[in-house]
Nucleic acid binder design. Structure first.
Lengths: 124, 124
DNA sequence: GATATTAGTTTCCAAGAGGAAACTAATATC
DNA sequence: GATATTAGTTTCCTCTTGGAAACTAATATC
């Protein structure tokens, strides 16, 4: 007699796992949370501002990730009528709904680091 | 005059961003949340049970991800004295601390899907 | 006229993630 | 003796991710 899946075959689990896959497909990658977090902190920033704020990112990745985030309505992009041209990036209202998740992730990561390096909390 | 980073150069932001990187380095990849979620639901499962429960995963990825999770003390592995040999995988107490994060991720993903497909909530 | 600034794009490359299939190895069942 | 079960490992392959550097193009400043 062949065994079948039991736990994850329930409707509740299927929906839940798909939701997790959905969220991850939008938020995966090395830089998305950093970009979103910076825009939540900084309100409105230009491309070069973001490049300076986010340590280590290059123009190619910043440009590509911003496009992804804009497509999914998490970030808004506004071209300003200035010379030279400037662009303002902001978090959208919908993007702000990610704040609880980002907070939870930061909280867990902080606790994790404390559990691994209990003596030098907050240090490098 | 050269501009410097302002927002993310604060101590609070540095710590926060490192925490997010830490968490993501443990939890990144296509399967980790699925494995953790299944083990939280299912309490204790064997390797083949997990393979059946997690739709689409293969033996190589399951084995590798379980090792990663075990190294980081999120999952425990117990070899049973049976014939043929069986192995019990469980979520650790520490692994259970991820539940709020997983819930938040699932919640956001569910809301996201509703916002994209408002008419067929819960359907495929 | 040279340089700097804005905001990117393009190209080339290296490393990693992930999948399919075959394989190991022990034991139990048909 | 053949097949199935347990729990993986190994090999080969492709696709994706991400980084460095060069490039575009418009305008402003030195």
């Amino acid at each position: 007699m062949k065994k079948n899946a039991q736990i994850n075959s329930t409707q509740v689990c299927q929906v839940r796992m798909r939701a997790i896959s959905d969220a991850m497909s939008l938020l995966s990658g090395k830089w998305k949370f950093h970009i979103l977090g910076t825009l939540i902190e900084g309100n409105t920033l230009g491309f070069m501002d973001l490049l300076r704020e986010i340590n280590g990112i290059g123009t190619k990745m910043l440009s590509k990730e911003l496009q992804d985030l804009e497509i999914n309505n998490l970030v808004s992009r506004t071209v300003m009528n200035t010379k030279p041209i400037t662009v303002q990036y902001s978090i959208t209202e919908y993007g702000k709904t990610l704040l609880p998740l980002i907070d939870e992730l930061a909280k867990w990561g902080t606790d994790y680091r404390k559990s691994v390096y209990p003596k030098n909390i907050g240090e490098k």
